[in-house]
Design a protein around this nucleic acid. Sequence first.
DNA 1: AAAACAAGAATGAACGTTCATTCTTAATTC
DNA 2: GAATTAAGAATGAACGTTCATTCTTGTTTT
Lengths: 206, 206
Amino acid sequence: MIGLETRDAPGSISERGFRRRCQVLDAAETCFRRHGFHAASMAGVAAEAGMSVGHIYRYFENKEAVIAAIVERDLTATAEQFERMREAPEGVVAAMVYGLDECLDQAADPATSALFLEVMAEAARNPKVARMAAGQHAKIREWLTALFASGHGAELTQGQIDDVVDLLLLFMTGLRVRAAYDPDIDHQRMIRLLSRIITADPERKS
Amino acid sequence: MIGLETRDAPGSISERGFRRRCQVLDAAETCFRRHGFHAASMAGVAAEAGMSVGHIYRYFENKEAVIAAIVERDLTATAEQFERMREAPEGVVAAMVYGLDECLDQAADPATSALFLEVMAEAARNPKVARMAAGQHAKIREWLTALFASGHGAELTQGQIDDVVDLLLLFMTGLRVRAAYDPDIDHQRMIRLLSRIITADPERKS
DNA sequence: AAAACAAGAATGAACGTTCATTCTTAATTC
DNA sequence: GAATTAAGAATGAACGTTCATTCTTGTTTT
């Protein structure tokens, strides 16, 4: 067998170490999704990662550190998912629906949902995780607000924008929870509800 | 994973035994909220219940049975919470807001939220729990639909009613998740968003 | 006295974590 | 270029702890 791995120069940031770390995290994510943070065992994670138990401790101080890394990865991934709406086509409603369509795919995915719920359950009892979740929430909210403000211009008051953004966030979150027990969410229907939230203006004069 | 078979205690159903059972469940609920289903220990539950470890096994076959009982209790409690809207005052919107105001109190409560998320996380990986959650969901949805149909009469099509009900359910669920990391939810604001969902009719002719 | 109830020590399995050891491979020596 | 050295990568058995569960013993009730 030819060794494809190249040794790292001493002192440099280890490329191999980084990949090994990811390997552990990917395995942990799978195990955590399957059994939850606390029912999953380090032995199981090691088996999934295809390495020995003890070797995990070369890259993570303990199990809690692995969980923390997974939480961070999941939360930042969700925030980035929302920010990808930047590359949306013209028109606010279209942009929203287009971008949120992607988010919907992710939100309605049972596997994604399982990890999300695990993270939120952890947030409910771990103040540090709660603070991270709140940070992610604020980030997404800020970005959505800016998108709406730039799109609708002066048509909507700040209060109205805040309302729509809040409704959107609650909608997406609710969807993630529903995916946990209902894998057959009607995608087209959700898009319709989504656009309804965005377009419905309770104070318009028609 | 949790076995949901309900096992009746052998012999007669004693009043004292029933109270003891509740005592265990109340203690378990507290512990599960604090640590989650799998990180909570039977010793901790026993201490919280003010009884010995081994004695719990007189009323529950094992830890799984305790979890199953808590899951069932939580899910049915939520469904009953919604059904309490039956005693709402006249007028659909008022009835909705009035009834949902109560639900909101519950949904925005961090303690309630913690257990809810635990149950949902379990549903994401345990088909039996998922089926129970889906059943609760269907029950609430059915009831909300009937309430809307009787209130709005022929003003709304069935499709429009379905949309509003779905939005409502997703809203309430999203709120429960948010309570996990944000204990200071603006109640009045949520009421406003709620009534906006209910009243906004995208196809009305005014 | 019998039966049900209660408590907590005992038990074995499983867990997270550590560590002495072996592999692997780049670098060095001859 | 073969042999040797050096060092990090990787292993998995072993450790102490904690867990769910059972067993033994004592107490209360009928």
